[in-house]
Every structure is written in C-alpha cells, then in structure tokens.
Design a protein around this nucleic acid. Structure first.
Lengths: 101, 101
DNA sequence: TTGGCTTATCGGGAATTTTCGATATCTTTG
DNA sequence: CAAAGATATCGAAAATTCCCGATAAGCCAA
C-alpha cells in the first residue's frame, strides 16, 4: 500500500466522482450488455466517460490511476473493460488512516 | 471537510512524514522550552525543520498546507508556533473514507 | 528602539499533473 | 483478413506542485 500514490489518486475531484458513481452503478449508469447481469463485473469505460463528459483518453487514464493505487479493479470481457471498486482496499485505507496516519 | 484539499495535503511524502512525527513528539524531537511542559502545545517549526532537513520556508509552507486541510492545528506562544495533530479530524477522515468515499 | 530569533510570505525555476487529440491495440463480426 | 467499436497509450500545452533563497513580519530582550 503506497500511501502517497493512493492520496494522489484521490486528490482530484473527477476521480473522487468516479469512485462515488461506482458505489451505485444502477443509479448512475444505464443497463449494460448481456453477460454481465446487473453490474457484477463493474461498469465499462464508455459509460463512465459519457457520464463525466470528459475525453475518452482522460477517463481511461483516470481509471488507470485509480487502479494503480489499488482502489478499483479492472476486468476485461470482450471488447469492454469493466471497472469496479475494491471495497476491501477502501476499508483498509480508512483503517490505516485511523491507526497509522 | 474538503476532501480534495485533504487528499492533496496528504499526497506528499514529506507531509506524511510530518504527520507521523507529530504522533510521537518525544520520540522524534528534543525537549522544548519552558512553558510548554512536554509537548502539550505541539512541536515548534524549527524542530520539525531540523528533523526534515528542508528549508525553513518549505517546512512552514507544508505546515500551512496541513493546517488548511484541517489535519493539524497551530498555537502561537511567544515567538514560536507549535503545531500538533488534530486527532479528531484524522479519525473523522478515516471514518469518512470507510463510509462515503 | 534596535537587534536577534522564529515563523510567514513572496517570486521563481524545475518537476509533475491535467487534459486533450491523435494514434495504436485488442476484440468481435462479416 | 478487413472493418468497426472499445479501450489504452503517446505527445504536448497549460496549470499546478515542489522546493528554494530572499525578504517581511512578529515577538522578546537589552
């Protein structure tokens, strides 16, 4: 757990917004393709991009940043990459702040 | 609580180091002047600077950044400014991450 | 009030981040 | 295999952060 990397990832309004939207996919995103019933795998990049209104490259980069920090995970399925929160990692971060920051 | 501001303050190795040293003042710093028995008021800027080996202006700025984020508090006493952790704010941050991030 | 500390603020060069458009890569489909 | 769609990566301009030295401001002692 690289704290500086994690806090850098979190120190951007849009990236916080992504994390927040990923908490309730069915509230923020339209239903997705077949295989992935509901949002079990997460949300695909295109949906996140549409919601944010930023360029595709920027959103892809933001997701990569959050992933490198270990806050979200990526699953490739077909031509889509689905991202979802790593709840355990987020809980650990909260705990770490309370105990070791 | 401005999350982006807080995470920006935390996304720097030196500033994390300051927070960490302020957890155990008597471990990291030499005893201080009269009035402030032990480190009740916190630690003065000069001691923090010496320990870090960075310029006075940089350390002063870092402390201001942490203070603006609400993570530490400042108390002026004579010609010294003592900084100490705001433990309650740090606990709240950990809790916020676990529940609303 | 003058001089000596301690801390804060200013101005700036170097490094990093932000965000984009263009392009490359990967996957599916015809 | 070629075309099309989704995502990743590259290159770059603008904005921000990092960290410094110089200087200002606050406080105390002589």
């Amino acid at each position: 757990m690289n704290k500086v990397e994690i806090f850098k990832a979190l120190s951007n309004k849009t990236r916080l917004q992504i994390l927040n939207m990923l908490r309730e996919p069915d509230r923020y995103f339209p239903p997705q393709q077949a295989g992935d019933s509901a949002f079990g795998l997460g949300v695909c990049v295109g949906h996140i991009q549409q919601k944010l209104g930023l360029s595709q490259s920027t959103v892809s980069e933001y997701l990569a940043t959050l992933q490198r920090a270990g806050l979200i995970t990526a699953t490739r399925s077909g031509q889509w990459t689905y991202y979802k929160r790593d709840e355990a990692a987020i809980q650990r971060l909260g705990e770490t702040i309370r105990q070791e920051l």
